[in-house]
């Protein structure tokens, strides 16, 4: 629908429109733009986050580029990002499977059931996972012990050490519960496994709405052409939800880059043992609130913004989908 154009000369008659934009404008200008501007400004200062500020030019930025911890943090976030790509698969598969359920009522029921876990507050989910990884009382170790998978892990670990592929001392030893979030070698695997079975209900709903637009005749035609179940997925379903997948991809990139709350809760401000799970966002938080290097933290925030901007750009540019 074409929007009605208001000319400059008519502003007088349409002044209420500006009043209606005012609340949003005020909120956004005050609480988003002002901090952003102030952040850029302070990134050129040595600043304790309070009154004390000395201009130091670009030194915060040069420091960031030579800071090994920040470099490592970007590598960690890169690993988590790649893992997240794979973690998108279950949502897609689940959406397709729900879509292929023949009964309308069952389809609705499944949809409903998958939404239900959304009621668990995010913090509770995190704390339950933390509990799940707890070395003494956690569900993961009990499960591994009960199914004797632990013995298998111990054996494999010993074997790998014998072959000089893994280093001693062994991560898994008999009669010792591994500390998933306490052992620097196990933290990243634990973070990657986090969220299993990796079904994001918002994603599933978005995919489903895309799938539902596929006309029945397309399936019937595919049946006549002898396309199998995987062929249908590959040639019909996947291309039709490509747009939605891309949207989710963008959201995920931003989410992973910004998402340090998870690590803060699971592994504290310092990013776990030896800081192995330090990600850029958390490092920024750490510098701002633990080390009172707010100027440096601002500079990191700006860098992070440009990384997100670049990735979003790359995504819209190269993962193009025809509508």
């Amino acid at each position: 629908m074409a929007r009605q154009r208001v000319k400059l000369s008519q502003v007088k008659r349409y002044w209420p429109l500006y009043v209606m934009v005012l609340p949003t404008l005020a909120l956004v200008a005050l609480f988003m733009y002002w901090p952003a501007v102030s952040g850029v400004y302070h990134s050129f200062y040595r600043w304790d986050g309070d009154e004390l500020a000395t201009f130091i030019g670009l030194r915060n930025y040069s420091r960031a580029f030579s800071d090994p911890t920040l470099g490592r943090a970007f590598i960690v976030v890169g690993i988590l990002f790649v893992a997240s790509l794979f973690k998108m698969i279950p949502s897609i598969v689940t959406a397709v499977v729900i879509h292929r359920i023949t009964s309308d009522r069952m389809r609705y029921l499944y949809r409903l059931l998958f939404v239900v876990p959304m009621v668990i507050p995010w913090m509770v989910v995190l704390l339950i996972w933390k509990f799940f990884y707890n070395p003494v009382v956690g569900l993961l170790n009990s499960f591994l012990n009960a199914t004797h998978l632990m013995s298998l892990l111990v054996a494999v670990n010993a074997w790998l050490i014998d072959l000089n592929i893994a280093k001693a001392p062994a991560l898994f030893q008999a009669n010792m519960n591994p500390a998933w979030l306490g052992n620097s070698s196990l933290v990243l695997p634990a973070l990657i496994f986090w969220g299993f079975p990796w079904i994001g209900i918002i994603g599933v709903l978005i995919y489903l709405s895309g799938l539902e637009k596929i006309p029945r005749s397309v399936y019937e035609c595919a049946d006549l052409d002898g396309v199998g179940w995987f062929g249908k997925f590959l040639y019909i379903e996947l291309p039709l939800i490509a747009t939605q997948v891309r949207i989710n991809l963008v959201l995920m990139i931003i989410g992973v880059l910004k998402g340090y709350g998870l690590i803060l809760v699971l592994l504290t401000e310092s990013g776990g043992p030896e800081g192995v799970a330090m990600v850029p966002g958390l490092y920024m938080y750490y510098n701002a609130f633990m080390r009172r290097e707010a100027g440096y933290a601002c500079a990191m925030g700006i860098l992070l913004f440009f990384v997100i901007l670049a990735l979003t750009y790359v995504n819209t540019k190269f993962v193009r989908v025809e509508k």
């Binding site: 208001v6 952003a36 920024m284 601002c298």
Partner: peptide, 28 residues
């Protein structure tokens, strides 16, 4: 509904914000 003068400018400004990580300006 409307295309008001300066509306487009403001709109673009808002959309850029979608990309801004909340963390970037947490301290300010």
């Amino acid at each position: 509904r409307y295309r008001v003068p300066f509306g487009q400018l403001f709109w673009l400004g808002l959309i850029i914000l979608m990309l801004m990580p909340g963390v970037a300006n947490l301290i300010p």
